Amino acid sequence: MRKTRMAASAAACLLALSSLTACANDAAGSASDSGNGSGGKGEHVKIMVGGLDKVIYLPAMLTQRLGFFGAEGLDVQLLSEPAGVQAETALVSGQVQGAVGFYDHTLDLQVKGKSVESVVQFSHAPGEVEVVSQKTAGTITSPKDFKGKKLGVTGLGSSTDFLTKYLAVKNGVNVSDFTPVAVGAGPTFISALQKGSIDGGMTTDPTVATILQKKAGRILLDMRTPEGSQQALGGPYPSSSLYMQTDWVNSHKDTVQKLVNAFVKTLTWMSTHSASEIAAKMPADYSQGDRTLYAEAIKSTLPMFTKDGVMPAGGPETVEKVLKAFNPSIKNAKVDLAKTYTTEFAEKSAG
């Protein structure tokens, strides 16, 4: 399903952004140190990830570590930002050619006049978990209790922000009745939960696994499986994906096909290997000193991933329903879902 959209400029240099440069060097170093990187040879592509160490975006670094980018003749530079909304910003500003983040950003961007599409779909469930602090576990027993609460999200305008607002509205709580707090993920999220800066929040593994190990909070809603997505959101919810500006896709089809080939190889590899085997391929620092806990985090999240990178049937409609429930700009706009994704490249890879 191929569609066209408005154009964006070619990628600009990120060297002036020191934090991104550091992340890029870390990513490239991790890949080359393992001998599985692309080795700096081939066509150069920059991809911004909304959190390289998040398990929901694991295919990005795993593809690098397995050497699949290099095998396709690509030199892929992986960059990292704490939240998907920041990865989106890097993409639309032309700083990178691709973004690994939630598919829902493509709908949000379309109504803002930006033409962006998912070219390979990593997942059919959000992989997100709503947790509540130990202190508030007795008073927050469902999203109906969000009123008056401070709820953590990775960033304002992020997919965790979107999903939190939907869960509130679905359960009779207005978005103005609670306070979203941008706390990132990992140590910053956990610290906010422990200090009472937030009463609960939405996050992913490995943060979830650490929260449970530290007994810093409890799970309220688990959307790491298709079943959990169905229960909370009413259908499959395609989340983590590689999305790119449509104009760039149309003018670089060979490169996009190679990228998708690499990612589909990874998704297939993941479906035939254990969580421990996957964990062993990732950078050592991703486990934060506890490889067993990290493997458990991967095991809990594995059900969210597709095996072929193809958009799940009915998924875009679920995402549109969720966004229309609370987002005024989308609620009152006509979204052309067919222009928010393509299955052209993934079907060729899987075929």
Rank of each mutant, 00 (worst) to 15 (best):
E88S: 02
T89D: 05
T89Q: 07
T89W: 04
A90E: 09
L91C: 02
L91T: 00
S93K: 12
S93G: 00
Q95P: 00
Q95H: 06
Q97F: 04
Q97Y: 00
Q97H: 12
G98C: 13
G98M: 10
A99D: 13
A99H: 13
V100F: 03
G101R: 06
F102Q: 05
H105F: 15
T106Q: 00
T106F: 03
D108T: 08
L109V: 12
L109P: 11
L109R: 11
Q110A: 06
Q110W: 03
V111P: 05
V111Q: 13
V111F: 09
K112Q: 15
K112V: 05
K112Y: 02
K112N: 14
K112T: 10
K114Y: 15
S115V: 00
S115R: 06
E117I: 08
E117T: 03
V120G: 09
Q121R: 01
Q121I: 05
F122N: 12
F122T: 00
S123Q: 04
S123L: 06
S123G: 06
A125M: 09
P126W: 06
P126V: 01
G127W: 06
G127E: 12
G127I: 01
G127L: 04
E128S: 13
E128Q: 10
E128N: 13
V129P: 11
V129F: 11
E130T: 10
E130A: 13
V132P: 13
T136H: 09
T136C: 07
T136I: 02
T136K: 13
A137C: 05
G138R: 12
I140H: 06
T141Q: 15
T141L: 14
T141R: 15
S142F: 04
P143M: 02
D145W: 12
D145K: 09
F146A: 02
F146K: 03
K147W: 04
K149M: 15
K150G: 02
L151I: 13
V153P: 04
T154L: 06
G155Y: 08
G155C: 07
L156M: 09
G157C: 01
G157P: 00
G157Q: 00
S158G: 14
S158K: 10
S159G: 06
F162D: 15
F162I: 02
F162A: 15
F162L: 09
L163E: 12
T164W: 09
K165L: 02
K165G: 03
Y166W: 01
L167F: 04
A168V: 07
A168M: 08
